[in-house]
Write a protein that binds this DNA or RNA. Structure first.
Length: 155
DNA sequence: GCCAACGTTGGC
DNA sequence: GCCAACGTTGGC
């Protein structure tokens, strides 16, 4: 049995928040238009993998909850929708450029684990999310970092 | 509001 | 193929 992956996704709560995910139950994590992030979703994420949900441009910034990967990656439908901001006229139905997974809500934390608190936590000193200039919106998380964030969320 | 860090685009 | 210009992300 392969070890499950651990991930983090960023979202701007004004666009789509953990509360939206809780309301929806699950959602395609679409609109991601970065090849590295796409590759993590398409090639890295497996059903059952757990995902930290991070709010950027929020007060406070931080991890607000937990989700789970529901399926293997599938083509992001928005790339075929001319009315979408994520429409990609160069993408071909037979060879789609953009892929996403569906994420399922697991838990909304009672109080978020703030970026500030994470930066003060020695166990998270090497966490990619906290690196300066890190813009990637889908990234792997080390298992011990993942568990540290969960422990912080649960006090 | 500012700006550093990147990714993408397009001229050459 | 190089690289300058531009646009976006996202922390501060």
């Amino acid at each position: 049995m392969a070890t499950r992956g651990h991930w983090l996704v960023k979202t701007e709560p004004g666009t789509y928040s953990i509360d939206d995910l809780e309301r929806d139950g699950s959602t395609p994590w679409d609109g991601v238009r970065n090849y590295q992030a796409r590759n993590f979703m398409r090639d890295g994420m497996k059903p059952g993998d757990r995902v930290l949900v991070y709010h950027s441009n929020a007060k406070p910034m931080g991890v607000y909850g937990l989700a789970r990967v529901r399926d293997e990656a599938h083509p992001d439908e928005l790339q075929f929708d001319p009315s979408s901001a994520y429409y990609d006229e160069d993408s071909d139905r037979d060879d789609p450029r953009w892929w996403c997974v569906d994420l399922e809500h697991v838990e909304t934390f009672e109080s978020p684990v703030s970026r500030e608190a994470m930066k003060e936590e020695p166990a998270l000193a090497d966490m990619k999310l906290l690196e300066r200039g890190m813009r990637l919106s889908v990234m792997p998380v080390e298992p011990h970092e993942f568990e540290t964030v969960l422990r912080m969320a649960r006090g």
